[in-house]
Write a protein that binds this DNA or RNA. Structure first.
Lengths: 304, 304
DNA sequence: CAAGCCGCATTAGAAAATCTTATGCGTACG
DNA sequence: CGTACGCATAAGATTTTCTAATGCGGCTTG
């Protein structure tokens, strides 16, 4: 049995791109070639690998092969770096290290942490923003090889390392405080005042109310701002009160443009780095960079 | 850059077999094909991979590629097992799991330990007898992916696990004892009596004399018997006294065919399992089997 | 609802990669 | 010396893999 490099590359491209045509584009061949490669692989193995749909999704077997393909790609990249040999022809590998990161981490510490890996090791980093629900799936399928996530439990075949906690501070614009919280940041006032949320599932303000005042999780009327910076902007402009990552607002607090609504009380969200448990220098250095970057930027672990 | 599966297979076969022609035989192609594949690989990478000699040896770069090839082979094997899919055409992979084992372990506990892996997982095991001097090299070059060895320090890129100690007992035939050690097993008598050794480098009898009586390592006149069973046979037939693994001689001791020259005093040699630090189920199950087999068969760790 | 586009499959022939056959050359060995 | 071994190379055959062209189903759009 021999799995051809071309066949695996085609499968991987299809899984990554979601369509045969796009995969063909990426690999610089005609769609027909992709179709034939995949078909041949399927015939050799006697199993369907990709469900033809929009977008194409790998079957269970296809997923295993995709993972394998990515794995081998990584090994090859490491190998070529190790033997310091400039291969003939075209430049470096077209495929970067794909990871998923939760939005707030991306907005705060991740880029700084990855700078050195990206530059020193000349790897292309491909960051996706981590939609909590999909990261496990993406990790398993091989679409990404690591995620920064709040999920603690390890996914099958992955290793997980704690990164520290992201500390969220309840903040609002001073004028907003005067307008809505003039009689203090009480439970009633907090629930009454307009709040901010990242999206419909973001319950952080509610959690904070519980954390601060106890009781049931309240129903809040929140503006939805699906970007950390938009969220912050909204907060700065007095649209509502919200939970901002501490590192994002130190200056605004210092300058008095934001007020800490409940000094000393924060919401701490632990973060973890989950990555494939394979022996790859690329992954390891990526993980090391993230861990050390997080150590510098995040608070030490504490309960949620 | 794409390393073709065929090219890597050719390189690996050459490294394993030591000659292009033999590699061709193994892969079922003509020597010319091997030559062309290797050459092409060399041209793509811009480096010599194999030094043409008898036997052929890989260069440093070639070695890295060989390792990579073996690594990918292993991954592929694991993958094919994982996706429970019977590939079309020819039977299972021609390449087994190659390990090196020291002779006494092979003679005593290793086979029993490996039985289950070999049978349950349908892998072919290729055991080489571990010439202490070469195992490190073999491990590094990828010729074997793991060794049972007395060397404790980990080889670059390998993980090491303690297996327990092999306990050697000083033994001789009763008639031999009467003839040479009639006045007790003293240092003088031990040095004077003919002893047994595995090969020219085997100093175990000398070490035992030091262990028992102290002083300098003596010069011994030893018969050389480069096989554990021949060694034992020689001991049983009264050719000399020698250090035998305890598990090999319990019955002979019980039946009075051998005498323990220094009851309570043994030479304990710690053993270690060193294997590639890669994520491969094959390697892991092999290691697990060896560790548990050793736990059952060997004594717990103790000083040498 | 029809036209157009997207996306994959299939076919046939072109192009490329890979193999075999045949040959040469150097070295080791009897 | 002659022979066997072992690798390189050239040339032609074979196989693989690609492109180009076409078809078909589903979805969007005017």
């Amino acid at each position: 049995m021999r799995l051809g490099a071309g066949q695996l590359a085609a499968l991987a491209a299809v899984c990554r791109e979601g369509s045969f045509d796009q995969a063909a584009l990426v690999l610089g061949v005609t769609p027909s070639a992709i179709s034939q490669r995949v078909k041949q692989l399927e015939e050799q193995l006697g199993a369907v690998l990709v469900i033809r749909a929009s977008p194409c999704v790998p079957t269970a077997v296809g997923e295993a092969l995709f993972r394998h393909a990515v794995h081998v790609e990584l090994l090859e990249r490491d190998l070529l770096r190790e033997i310091d040999v400039t291969p003939r022809e075209d430049a470096q590998s077209p495929v970067g290290l794909a990871i998923a990161v939760n939005a707030d981490s991306l907005a705060t510490w991740v880029l700084a942490a990855l700078r050195s890996v990206a530059i020193d090791r000349h790897v292309r980093i491909e960051i996706s923003v981590d939609d909590q629900d999909f990261t496990a799936q993406w990790l398993q399928s091989g679409r990404v090889l690591g995620v920064v996530t709040t999920a603690e439990r390890a996914i099958q075949g992955c290793r997980v390392e704690p990164l520290g906690v992201m500390r969220y501070v309840a903040t609002a614009r001073p004028s907003f405080v005067r307008r809505w919280l003039g009689r203090g940041f009480t439970r009633a006032a907090a629930v009454d005042a307009p709040s901010l949320a990242y999206d419909r599932r973001d319950k952080m303000c509610g959690q904070f109310v519980v954390e601060r005042f106890g009781g049931e999780t309240p129903e809040l009327h929140a503006h939805l701002l699906p970007s950390p910076h938009a969220y912050l902007e909204a907060c700065l402009s007095g649209l509502g009160w919200g939970m901002n990552p501490d590192s994002l607002i130190t200056r605004a607090l210092q300058r008095g443009r934001l007020v800490d609504l409940a000094p000393g009380c924060t919401l701490d969200v632990p973060l973890y780095w989950q990555s494939w448990a394979i022996a790859s220098r690329s992954i390891e250095s990526l993980g090391a960079a993230l861990v050390s970057g997080a150590r510098a930027a995040l608070a030490r672990r504490r309960g949620r």
